[in-house]
Design a protein around this nucleic acid. Structure first.
Lengths: 141, 141
DNA sequence: CAGTTAATTAACGTTCTGGTTAAATAATAG
DNA sequence: CTATTATTTAACCAGAACGTTAATTAACTG
């Protein structure tokens, strides 16, 4: 695996379980067992997810008696945001309009922060680039 | 690998080579050989990176004679942006201040879009959460 | 058609991921 | 000290990721 911060952050975010954990942590700190509760996987598995999140800096951890608490940390998310900034300027309006639309869709269907994101949020893909230049946009094979 | 869009996008973005390819594509469409030029890895490897990017929707591909062109697509990045929105609201000011700072730092050092992001952008991590609650913030072991 | 250029697919090896169960560690409670 | 609760580490496994080289496909060129 690449070892730079962005790569670590993106690959940490690439797992639905870990994203769900982060969503949970947005509601406040929690212990390992609490975080594990919604999932069917074993505690050691959760423990390792937490280690991945910690390594990427997305969470920090503390101890209260025999409990290890996890807390959401803003820095890596802010860095992702900064990364997007580049493309936000480049892609211009379509970017923000799409994001705005996706945000609204996301809000409609249930609690905004309690997702595992198993959906497709279709109907937005490839409907926003009217500036054709060279190609034919077909798929290979 | 998880098959939902966000997971696909995040894991596509988790690779520095792929991010560099996207950065290159922000300057306009390019062929496979052109995209491969800055890297030391083989052409088949690049070809597969492109397939990953295509699968996640981050790029679309067309054909011009024997050349396959790749083009940056905004939708997945917009979706990432929408994902962050959730936390942007939650994390409040620190989020944007951090992002703003990171953006500035990023701008200073060279061409904004031509990065492989091998740096650490230190000095921002964990300096922004004054709201302690329970724990001691020590590391384990 | 034969040859060249561009890109992909096939086959293969190594390393990383994400899960499991069993054992070990940490801290509290009796 | 012993037991209990919370969490991590160890050992293991299956599958995915990412690289390689060799072979194949696609499209143009003479």
């Amino acid at each position: 695996m690449a070892t730079d911060t962005l790569s670590l952050t993106f690959s940490a975010l690439a797992d639905p379980t870990r994203r769900a954990i982060l969503a949970r942590l947005a509601d406040g700190e929690a212990t390992v067992t609490e975080l594990a509760e919604p999932f069917e996987i074993s505690l050691p598995a959760i423990s390792r997810h937490l280690k991945v999140l910690e390594t990427s800096g997305l969470i920090s951890r503390g101890r209260s008696a025999q409990w290890r608490t996890s807390r959401l940390e803003p820095a890596p998310l802010a860095e992702v945001n900064a990364y997007l900034e580049t493309y936000r300027r480049f892609l211009g309006s379509s970017f923000d309009r799409l994001a705005e639309h996706l945000r609204r869709v996301q809000e409609e269907s249930g609690h905004p922060l309690d997702d595992t994101h198993g959906d497709r949020t279709a109907d937005t893909t490839r409907t926003t680039t009217p500036t054709r230049t060279t190609d034919t946009d077909e798929d290979e094979r």
